[in-house]
């Protein structure tokens, strides 16, 4: 007989060792993204085709900037968790570690680039 509770026996199981937290994060972020997807498509649809100064002014406004920032931040962290599931399914050993690192580094670089661009457009618009 093992002196171990069922909870302790189940903890850390699964290839990612943190499955419940990842699953719950994907659930929460997917609910947010259901609302953000149509809003983001409308924002981008209105932006494509604008001349350069109008485009900068457009993303300097709160609604387009916030929707775009939220979509890209929540979307890319959702992407990190999603790729992690794929990586855990298809890659082993060193390849798995490298793939996870590439996915996380790439996603945060995309987030940083987008947030920087939006912040700068907001500041430029405020300056005008």
């Amino acid at each position: 007989m093992r002196y171990i509770t069922p909870r302790k026996a189940a903890m850390g199981l699964g290839s990612a060792h943190s499955g419940t937290a990842d699953h719950w994060f994907l659930t929460v972020s997917s609910c947010a993204l259901v609302l953000l997807v149509p809003a983001f498509l409308l924002v981008i649809g209105n932006a494509i085709g604008l001349p350069h100064p109008e485009l900068v002014a457009y993303f300097g406004r709160p609604y387009p900037a916030l929707i775009t920032a939220l979509f890209i931040v929540v979307g890319m962290v959702h992407f990190i968790k999603g790729t992690r599931i794929m990586i855990d399914d298809y890659f082993q050993h060193t390849a798995r570690k490298v793939a996870i690192i590439v996915s996380v580094v790439f996603s945060w670089a995309v987030i940083a680039a987008a947030v920087f661009a939006l912040a700068k457009m907001t500041l430029v618009t405020v300056a005008i």
Partner: peptide, 27 residues
């Protein structure tokens, strides 16, 4: 589809960064 969305997001983020990099980059 989830993984392929990388292409669209990269294009749009490049476009956003180009918009604050200067007229030639944006063009």
């Amino acid at each position: 589809t989830g993984h392929a969305l990388v292409a669209g997001i990269l294009l749009l983020v490049w476009w956003l960064v180009a918009a604050v990099s200067g007229p030639r980059a944006f063009a």
